[in-house]
Amino acid sequence: MLAPAEWGIVLLSLRVGGVAVLACLPVAFALAWLLARGRFPGKLLLDGLVHLPLAVPPVVTGWLLLLAFAPGGPIGGWLESWFGVSVLFRWTGAAIASAVMALPLMVRAMRLSIEAVDRRLEQAAATLGAGRWRVFASVTLPLSLPGVLAGAVLGFARALGEFGATITFVSSVPGETQTLPLAIYAALQLPGGEGQVLRLAGISVLLSLGALLASEIIARRAGRGLHVL
């Protein structure tokens, strides 16, 4: 079975992935909403920007994050002067990289589910006296929830597999930023690391498979009009 250090890697990965997805969730939902329902100039550009991490090499995304979050960078400088913190070489930075890489997948899934909500039901709710917020909270959100959850799980799977952007942005610091893929890569570089590679790779496959299955089950239930909650 896994050695304590390997359990630490798994837990770190889960923490990085979990925090990334939770932090990403409201942003992704807001973007999905804008793209599904909004009518504004520059919508195509926003769509492109959101999907950019899917298209550019992850190492480029990591480098751009590095520029932004470096002590002299636009976001890094601000974090430094206001909170005195830096995310470089920290697990929080790994979570940021994972969140950025997971964002396009999450927005995509959520956007589809928002677009699939029958607007006529929202109209019916409005005629029954429900204002904008009540329509959103009582009709739109519950009906798009399966897609939102499926998107979150998919994002989590993507976050667990993040490699290129993370290693470029926050490097591979054992116990801090060395998530599963980074640890596997590091173990591959060492002579006699095959056993560890095998164990960590196995865990990776199991985690990803679990997340994908969960996403699929949620999406299927939603497709049959069942309730996920």
Binding site: L121, Q123, A124, T127, A130, G131
Partner: peptide, 16 residues
């Protein structure tokens, strides 16, 4: 719409 207080029965039931 929400303030008009119309009791609208649509052609399709439109139940939630």
């Amino acid at each position: 719409v929400a303030e008009r207080r119309a009791g609208y029965v649509f052609q399709e039931a439109r139940l939630f």
